[in-house]
Amino acid sequence: MEGSSIEVKRRKDVAQIKKDIARNTKELFAQKGYGATSMEDICTINNRSKGSIYYHFKSKEELFMYLIKLNNEEWMDSWLEKEHQYETSVDKLYGLADHYVDDLANPLNHSINEFVSGQVVSQEMLDEMLSLIRIPYMTYERIISKGIEDGELKPEDPQDLMHIINGLFNGLSTLYYEKDLTDIRRLYKKGIASMLVGIQQLQP
């Protein structure tokens, strides 16, 4: 029994070390970009040897993928903490738009875009990247399904609407390099309003 508890503690310690390495390195990737960040930089900022870093991550790519996973999970957790503030599914869609805009200034986003567009990736890494991208999907679909169930939204296919919302959010995010956040927020809300014209159930 004692051996089992020691093993559980060891796993928790290893998991925490991985998170610490990733979070220490986040600022480095944000400042220098993915390509310009070297393993030497990563070792220095973590005060660890290369062997210690490689014990937890096989490569810089694996470390960065883990960091993207943490980043997406934190985005999701942050939304779940505030979701209760919105009463209806329509309100939640507008709230999600705001939440998405709030994250556009995340300093890691530029490095993520650089990584995704500039890497020659294996099928395994591509599958992992897709699974990370899909993290918000269940939340979008859940909100849409509840809206349909409550009669707020027309009885459309929730998955279709989820993909449309995801495309809207991701597509408008490119405006970050052209417009200020106030204008981008306005366009996100306008996008939701335009979409609702087609899917919102008009009350008698």
Rank of each mutant, 00 (worst) to 15 (best):
L187K: 13
D157R: 13
E178P: 00
V14L: 12
E62L: 00
A105R: 13
G147L: 04
S194N: 13
I53C: 04
I68K: 07
R11D: 10
Y188G: 09
L153S: 02
A30V: 07
L28E: 15
T174W: 05
D127M: 09
G51M: 01
V8I: 15
A15L: 10
S5L: 12
G191A: 10
L196Y: 04
F64G: 11
I192W: 01
S122C: 00
L202D: 15
G33I: 04
K32D: 06
I53L: 09
S5E: 09
Q119V: 07
W75M: 03
P155C: 03
Q85P: 02
D77V: 09
L104D: 06
A22I: 11
Q203T: 15
A36H: 14
L172P: 00
S78R: 05
L70F: 02
S173N: 02
Y177G: 06
M39S: 10
S111W: 05
V8T: 12
K190W: 04
H110Q: 12
I6L: 09
L153Q: 06
A22H: 06
N71S: 14
T88S: 10
M1P: 03
G35H: 15
V121M: 14
L63C: 04
K19T: 14
K18N: 04
F169P: 02
I68A: 06
Q203Y: 12
Q201W: 13
D150P: 02
G198P: 05
I6P: 00
S111T: 05
F29V: 09
H84Q: 14
P204L: 12
G95A: 00
S145Q: 14
K32C: 04
V116P: 03
A193I: 01
S122L: 00
L172K: 00
L175Y: 11
K19P: 03
S173E: 08
S194E: 11
T139P: 05
L130N: 12
K32S: 07
I164Y: 06
E7F: 07
A193T: 09
S122T: 13
T182M: 11
D20F: 08
M65G: 01
R11F: 09
